[in-house]
Design a protein around this nucleic acid. Structure first.
Lengths: 353, 353
DNA sequence: TTCAATTGCGGGAACGTTCCCGCAAAAAAA
DNA sequence: TTTTTTTGCGGGAACGTTCCCGCAATTGAA
């Protein structure tokens, strides 16, 4: 309980420069109407004192409210993944609402390209100061990015990214590296002539670059570490769930020791539980509730996860730092690749993942 | 750029209650000198409006400065671990210094129990509002804890903890679980009658509960998963580094497939590099610069790591939340157990780990 | 009964900014 | 030259709190 010490505020600068606070303010924020002489004098004093504005006072005095918009897929019981980035976004919101920031959330349907278009137009008419969105639909996202740029609204990608765009930043996975690491873990368990099945839950892989990258990552690991066994890819449409059991059963034989699902593993795990797991090492993605059950009971051995909550949290904070704090933002931000098992999943559950 | 909307401030409450702002303030912060009637009236209005104080204005108006003290081991080239929690502490400091918080850091020498005593006394005479410290020396830390409590200074443990203390919170590892997970990874690589060496870099294990817990974790994993091989423990004093090579060489034979070092692995890795690694799977702790080299060149296979940067960051933030924001703090906070490999270590390097 | 102490409350400056308004001096236009 | 516009700057209210000071009313002590 000591009195505040340093007082390198705008008033002190004004006093030293023998001008008023208003003039200092004009210089600092380029509001014009200042002579070049006084401008330089003030800037020099600021440098000497290493002046850092008091952001509390700034936000308190300013009547400006920052409006952020978020556009992400809506989560469902079937695909709860997007619950987690949303959680992170809300965490960030709580922290910065005192600074006069409001966040409006928009959701689109992953199965309905029109919903993306519709919501993105909504966002533009609301004229936010910054946008965070998940560019799952490639073409539409590029279009939206262009419109954002045209309206001079900074935008940040989350979860996946697009090349050659003017996004302020990206927060998400490095899917290839995740697959590569999965390959390493898998290889610990493989013998000389074992077989591995890679299972993509999609028919047309072009629309799911995440899945492709993960598969490529694993295959490359094996290639770089001269694995002599066999790798089989199985592409199954999500609608084929009913035949899933037979499809898998038909592919597994006595040499099969690994099963890598390039997305959520719970549907497969359910079937494997019926068939019997045997010596199969099963890897999948994301620490979601349906997956959790099979991680706990030992069907799924590893889940790979890239901090979905943190993705949302950091993306919002980046926008805040850029717009409010005027800080520099890193363009590429890959989340660490986490390996979740029965033994450590508890520590990933409710904290900031 | 819209004007701020809601105005549920203290002035609004005062207006509704037909009293002055000062009275509302007295009620809210129990400064006394208010009649029971007005007290209740004001509290009701606050509840109705769901009043949340504006922390920016609070910190701005208040002339109170919070002084935090931090006491952790000093880091060295030999043991760079403590660099990372310090980093997290400094990150947190940057964020909250605008709120009128100053953090004074004290360092002690892990090999010199007196330095801990000396620094902790220093801290007490400086009368901080809160303390974060690493209770590495058991007896002295308990004593210090008692003194803190006596002076009514809240204190938070970091990195390791002590039972039955009145610490506000703990941020750190769950060492047992880390060892257990290491056992799981190890087991992927083991065959039916393989051998594993557990290496503790210490003579008297009682002083290193972390090491003991890690060993126990691994042994328990094997016990729970009926591993039939042999587990050998090797306790080596840190001064014995010269004979290290021979010591290890003597223990490894053709069935040895795993080496688990319960602390930093780089010294062992250096010797293994000379001996030749063979089929050995090597696991150690912490993503520090010396370890990194051997992770990159493939000598070390896994490093287990528990977010040392985050530990520091969160501990300071907890103190802030408790003292400044008057929030509830969770007592036990285990960091997630991260598994670092050649393939993913880059993503753990400079971000907030 | 008188005087002191206590209780209950209001006024208002201060925190470090933002930003509107006003005004003299200088420059440009007439 | 006179009038208008522009430039350069200062004054000061406001943001939502904290907290000191002052003062009337009530209570207690003598």
């Amino acid at each position: 309980m000591i009195e505040k010490s340093e007082k390198t505020g705008i008033t002190e600068i004004a006093r030293l420069a023998k001008v008023s606070k208003a003039t200092v303010d004009r210089v600092l924020y380029n509001r014009g109407r200042v002579s070049e002489d006084t401008r330089e004098k003030i800037l020099n004093i600021c440098k000497d004192l290493n002046y850092q504005p008091n952001i509390l006072a700034q936000r308190l005095a300013s009547d400006k409210v920052y409006k952020f918009a978020v556009l992400i897929p809506k989560y469902s019981r079937d695909n709860p993944y997007w619950k987690y980035p949303l959680k992170g976004i809300e965490n960030a919101e709580e922290e910065i609402e005192n600074y006069g920031v409001t966040i409006k959330k928009y959701f689109y349907d992953l199965k309905d390209i029109h919903s993306f278009r519709k919501e993105s137009l909504q966002i533009l008419t609301s004229k936010p100061d910054g946008i965070v969105f998940a560019p799952e639909f490639k073409r539409e996202s590029k279009e939206f990015s262009k419109k954002c740029a045209h309206n001079k609204i900074p935008y940040i990608y989350i979860d996946s990214t697009l090349p050659k765009q003017h996004n302020l930043s990206y927060f998400g996975q490095n899917t290839y590296q995740g697959g590569y690491l999965a390959g390493k873990l898998m290889s610990l368990h493989l013998k000389r002539y074992s077989e591995v099945i890679i299972l993509n839950f999609a028919n047309e892989l072009e629309n799911y670059p995440h899945f492709m990258d993960r598969e490529k990552g694993m295959r490359d690991y094996f290639a770089h570490n001269n694995f002599h066994g066999k790798i089989t890819t199985l592409n199954i449409s999500p609608d084929q769930e009913i035949e899933l059991k037979e499809l898998i059963k038909g592919k597994i034989h006595h040499r099969t020791r690994g099963l890598f699902i390039t997305s959520s593993a719970h549907k497969v795990a359910r079937q494997i539980q019926k068939i019997g797991k045997g010596r199969l090492l099963i890897q999948g993605y994301d620490l979601t509730t349906p997956n959790l059950k099979y991680l706990e009971n030992g069907i799924i051995d590893f889940l790979i996860c890239q901090k979905p909550v943190t993705q949302g949290y950091l993306a919002i904070n980046a926008l805040f730092d850029h717009l409010v704090q005027k800080k520099e933002i890193q363009k590429e931000n890959f989340m660490p690749i986490e390996i979740i098992t029965k033994e450590n999943y508890q520590y990933y559950l409710d904290s900031n993942n």
